[in-house]
């Protein structure tokens, strides 16, 4: 199993099937425990990762997630970057609205995940793909 010493520790998981979503969750949980996030924050980041990993699979047609430990000098944290080369998101504002969905879900994936993390960055281009980076810091 991965050990998470050093700031540069990062692990990449390909997301091409259901099992990979579970693997992303487990990887994020292991790291969240290692950086000593509070129980509620662990739950939040794992849930956010689960939503975004599923988005990558369902809407992005698969891609990968890179889970890494970060440090801003004062406190440690955990960052996950999801990348796919799917169709991209044409209307970002709309996609970030609560209840908006194209995939038959509850429409909470993007907007909900954004509320669960401290930092949320999204970079998308129609026809090229989408990259989403989320970060959760220790308190």
């Amino acid at each position: 199993m991965t050990t998470w010493d050093g700031a540069a520790a990062a692990e990449r998981v390909a997301i091409i099937s259901d099992q990979d979503v579970v693997r992303v969750r487990q990887l994020v949980r292991t790291l969240a425990v290692a950086v000593k996030l509070s129980l509620v924050d662990q739950t939040k980041i794992v849930t956010a990762a689960s939503e975004l990993a599923r988005n990558t699979l369902v809407y992005g047609g698969g891609g990968n997630a890179e889970v890494s430990r970060v440090d801003n000098g004062r406190k440690p944290g955990i960052r996950i970057v999801f990348a796919d080369e799917g169709p991209g998101i044409p209307d970002l504002d709309l996609a970030l609205t609560d209840g908006y969905t194209t995939g038959g879900g509850m429409g909470l994936g993007l907007s909900g995940a954004r509320r669960l993390v401290d930092e949320f960055e999204i970079d998308t281009e129609v026809g090229k793909g989408t990259t989403i980076s989320v970060t959760k810091w220790c308190r």
């Binding site: 509620v40 662990q42 739950t43 849930t47 939503e51 609560d98 909900g112 995940a113 509320r115 669960l116």
Partner: peptide, 14 residues
């Protein structure tokens, strides 16, 4: 349901 899960669901909007 665990408390942490309930809190997260509220934040998620579910």
């Amino acid at each position: 349901m665990r408390p942490a899960v309930a809190i997260t669901l509220v934040e998620l909007g579910l």
